[in-house]
Amino acid sequence: MTPYDVLRVFCDAGRGYGNELAVVRDGSKIPGETERQAMAAELGCSETVFVDDPERGVIDIYTPALRLPFAGHPCVGAAWLLDLPELITAAGEVGVRLDGEFTWIEARAEWAPPRVLRQYASAVEVDSLEVPEKGEWIYAWAWEDEAAGRVRARAFPGRDDGIDEDEATGAAALLLTQQLGRALNIGQGAGSQILTAPQPNGWVEIGGRVVLER
């Protein structure tokens, strides 16, 4: 198989948890969409990134089931790995900045795929949810501390690709940030952490820690 790296994106302060991301640094070895889709399905990560131009930051993103113009945790992971000032996705140019232990990207909410943002009364209620029936892509969330901007969230892609729950999802966090219009500190999945901040003119920053798994 073509060589690839595995990262964990949106880790907690102890460098644990995070959502796995596969990155094929030499995307030219797998130029066709059909072959890329097959590799993404075989790897089984929630997303796989193919780097088409490591100097310009041109990337191509796939789930096990489909190609995405933009996705949050793949862009944060690729930004950390490639160490470039921007990435070029099918949706548009993604700004990048590194701030100590955090890697930040800047993107637009309209680039994110549709998500159902479903608010619950408490974090306990979110924690107790069962995986729903296939169909809608649901981002279940509740305030842990509204004054401090702390959110508890879980993500259910609703697809038949073996991924019942996403550990950390930057695109959904972007949509929630745009909807609420404020900076958020999101605890998602088993223990991942996503930071967000609205920016002028419809942009949103998404930040997190990244670890090279293998």
Rank of each mutant, 00 (worst) to 15 (best):
P69K: 13
G191P: 06
T89W: 02
E130K: 10
C75W: 07
C75V: 08
A71C: 12
R8T: 12
L195H: 15
P74C: 04
A168M: 12
A121H: 11
E130Q: 14
D161Q: 04
G208M: 10
E106N: 03
A153H: 03
G14W: 07
R36C: 04
E106W: 00
G32S: 15
V76R: 07
T2C: 01
R67H: 14
L129K: 01
A112S: 14
E165D: 09
G135Q: 05
V204S: 07
A71E: 08
Y139N: 11
P31A: 09
Y62T: 05
P200L: 13
D52F: 07
D12N: 15
R25W: 07
R154V: 09
Y62D: 02
P198S: 14
G16K: 02
Y120A: 01
R56D: 12
G187E: 14
A65G: 01
P198L: 13
Q199Y: 01
R214E: 10
F156W: 12
E55D: 13
C45M: 14
C75F: 02
G208T: 07
D83M: 00
V49R: 08
G95R: 08
R115M: 15
G207P: 05
V24C: 10
T48K: 06
E205W: 08
E35S: 14
F156T: 03
R209S: 10
D145V: 06
R108T: 06
G32F: 02
G149W: 05
N201Q: 15
A123F: 02
G135F: 09
L212I: 13
A183K: 01
E165A: 14
A91P: 06
E20I: 00
Y120S: 01
W137D: 06
A65L: 11
N185Q: 13
L7E: 03
Q193M: 13
A91T: 12
S128F: 00
A71S: 14
P3E: 15
V204I: 15
G187H: 14
